[in-house]
Write a protein that binds this DNA or RNA. Structure first.
Length: 271
DNA sequence: CTTTGCACCTGTTGGC
DNA sequence: TGCCAACAGGTGCAAA
């Protein structure tokens, strides 16, 4: 499911319930996610205190004194806070049972998500160490984007979705940011002017911030950590609107494939 | 180094 | 109505 706004919303939803709690138990119903859930996890976490939570890219990081629990929601994962004893349903693979009467439950039908453990400095984990800057952080600015794209002949949309260049820009917001910037998704990244890099940085941040402000509810099956369904109508300019008319100029929105993903753009507004 | 395509897996949708 | 291919929010990895 999640794009970055959903992950950020999930973090904000679960953090108050986990912060400072002790882990009473760890229940693994199906360890076969993208990578196997470490078998040692229950013995590693039982009785330990949760020190804090943070997000890096779309990874959720839960800090303990002796290491960090890494969670990723993949395409279809969601986390919920539930009372002890809530019966699991289909695809509920993992529970973190807390000493405050609550549990955090991971549901992930497609099992592209991950639950991993890392002792030591979390930012040195192999999955995190190669990541580019946060899209909403200071390091992602016009100058950075301009320099980082000079050697890239690949389409700007593919570059935008490359985690080495910048993290957290998924298919929905890559499409939307490029529309708002008036940039054609197929344009080779290295052909973007400095000025257009500045605009793109701005529109990327704009669409992500707006979605976070709305509570990360851009996805049909997004479920808040309190179990409520968070979906309400999101206003997309192009994403998912192939064949419908552009909201700005009434030209039909075009659909192409880039890197095995659907790209939507307006041939009149984007160049 | 960059680029490309594949792989993982289940559920939903749309066309016939 | 039923069947089946195509597609869906991600991203690490191998190979070129």
């Amino acid at each position: 499911m999640p794009e970055l706004p959903e992950v950020e919303t999930t973090l904000r939803g679960i953090a108050p319930h986990l912060q400072g709690a002790l882990v009473q138990d760890v229940i693994v119903r199906n360890a076969q996610l993208r990578w196997p859930i470490p078998a040692a996890l229950p013995s590693l976490l039982r009785g330990r205190a949760i020190l804090g939570l943070q997000r890096r890219a779309k990874y959720l990081l839960i800090a303990f004194e002796h290491g960090t629990l890494i969670l990723h929601l993949g395409m279809s994962g969601s986390l919920r806070i539930l009372p002890h004893g809530t019966p699991p349903e289909r695809h509920d693979h993992f529970d973190l049972v807390l000493d405050n009467g609550k549990l955090m439950r991971l549901r992930d039908p497609r099992r592209f998500g991950a639950v991993l453990w890392h002792k030591g400095d979390i930012l040195e984990h192999p999955l995190l160490v190669t990541l580019g800057p946060e899209p909403l952080g200071e390091a992602f600015d016009a100058d950075y984007l301009y320099r980082a794209t000079r050697s890239r002949s690949a389409a700007i949309k593919l570059a935008l979705m490359d985690n080495h260049l910048v993290v957290g820009v998924g298919n929905i917001y890559a499409n939307e940011a490029l529309f708002r910037a008036g940039i054609r998704p197929q344009l080779p990244a290295k052909r973007l002017s400095r000025a257009r890099c500045a605009i793109l940085v701005q529109t990327v941040q704009e669409v992500l911030r707006a979605a976070i402000d709305k509570g990360g509810s851009s996805l049909r099956d997004f479920i808040h950590s309190d179990g409520s369904s968070g979906y309400f109508q999101q206003h997309y300019f192009v994403y998912g609107r192939g064949g419908e008319v552009c909201h700005r100029c009434r030209t039909p929105v075009r659909v192409i494939r880039q890197g095995q993903r659907s790209t939507f753009y307006c041939p009149h507004c984007q160049h």
